[in-house]
């Protein structure tokens, strides 16, 4: 009974879309990288630094969109680092990715302590406010869920659209997909596999950072260290769940977010009094694992994912 009430409440669906938004950005970022053949495990750290940079920029008195741009730029810088090490140098993508995550997280901590040495409670900023789209937001249930969100959420959905169009409808997307499947096919056309992969990692990392910034600039109004809390790793799973396709990955992000929104609400039902709350916290992860197992069985992994490309090699 309770469950039905929750599922029919507009606030539940609005929360699901809100929780999904940062995941959508970061999942699209990771998807671009992996489609080009580079696994980017720097995602967790890049989201942390994105969250920090966006928030700090606004705290320093700049506009909200300026904050988003700052996050994007910070992500791209770390993407550049990841790209240089994994693409032209061909180092292990696992090791470099974990290194980037550690580095980005530590740099954030360092910058935070340097800029706010005395502070115990991080200062708040004025975040993005929900903007209800006229007419559309009046649709029952759906309206509140999709059309009364902050601009960053709308941007997240737009990103999915742009990524799909670029991947499937442009020469650039064609080359990117080919680079992740058989880089020799790209090189045989005289195109640079290095440039395509570098570009994908840089842009993808920028999107990851914007996903992080969503948390400090739209979901919450402050920055704290635990806030990314494994969301980056979830996005890696979502890319697999989505079988490396933007639309399916979006669906996965929404599904995961819905489970997350559900468990918070289930905790407040009579059931919540009986069952330890940790069980509820586990729900989205357990269900994600199940969905992942079911969905990804027939997924086609980009054949050249994690395979460095050397031009002269036979």
């Amino acid at each position: 009974m309770d469950l039905l009430d929750i599922l029919l409440s507009a606030s539940f669906w609005a929360a699901a879309v809100r929780i999904a938004s940062p995941l959508i950005f970061a999942t699209m970022g990771e998807l671009i990288c992996e489609r080009a053949g580079v696994l980017n495990l720097g995602i967790e750290g890049i989201m942390v630094i994105g969250a920090f940079c966006g928030w700090m920029t606004v705290y320093l008195g700049f506009g909200l969109w300026f904050g988003v741009a700052a996050a994007l730029a910070a992500g791209m810088v770390f993407g550049l680092l990841h790209g240089v090490l994994t693409v032209p140098f061909g180092l292990s993508q696992h090791v470099v990715g974990l290194g980037v995550t550690l580095l980005a997280t530590s740099v954030t901590y360092f910058a935070y302590r340097l800029s706010l040495p005395e502070v115990t409670i991080p200062p708040r900023i004025e975040p993005f406010q929900p903007y209800a789209i006229p007419v559309l937001s009046d649709i029952p249930l759906l309206g509140a869920a999709l059309f009364a969100q902050t601009p960053l959420t709308y941007l997240a959905f737009a990103t999915v659209l742009v990524v799909s169009v670029v991947l499937y409808r442009t020469p650039l997307g064609l080359a990117l997909r080919a680079a992740g499947e058989n880089p020799a096919s790209v090189a045989a056309q005289g195109l640079s596999v290095t440039a395509i992969r570098m570009g994908a990692v840089i842009v993808g990392s920028g999107l990851m950072a914007v996903g992080g910034a969503f948390l400090t600039m739209s979901a919450f109004s402050s920055f704290f260290f635990e806030m990314i809390n494994g969301r980056g790793w979830i996005c890696i799973a979502l890319v697999v769940f989505g079988a490396w396709k933007p639309g399916k990955a979006l669906l996965g992000a929404l599904l995961f977010a819905a489970f997350d929104a559900l468990q918070i609400r289930l905790q407040q039902t009579p059931l919540g009094a009986l069952v330890p709350y940790q069980i509820f916290l586990m729900v989205p992860y357990v269900l994600s694992i199940l969905a992942l197992v079911l969905m990804s069985r027939r997924a086609e992994i980009p054949a050249a994912l994690m395979v460095p490309f050397n031009k002269g090699e036979r």
């Binding site: 442009t170 499947e181 020799a184 790209v186």
Partner: peptide, 27 residues
């Protein structure tokens, strides 16, 4: 000798790969 084709693309997409400027919209 070893084909330079991407398995995940269609025949047409493989043929089109690299024939147009990367920054043009549309294939």
């Amino acid at each position: 000798q070893h084909f330079t084709l991407a398995d995940n693309l269609t025949v047409l997409e493989n043929i089109l790969l690299g024939t147009r400027s990367m920054w043009r919209p549309g294939l």
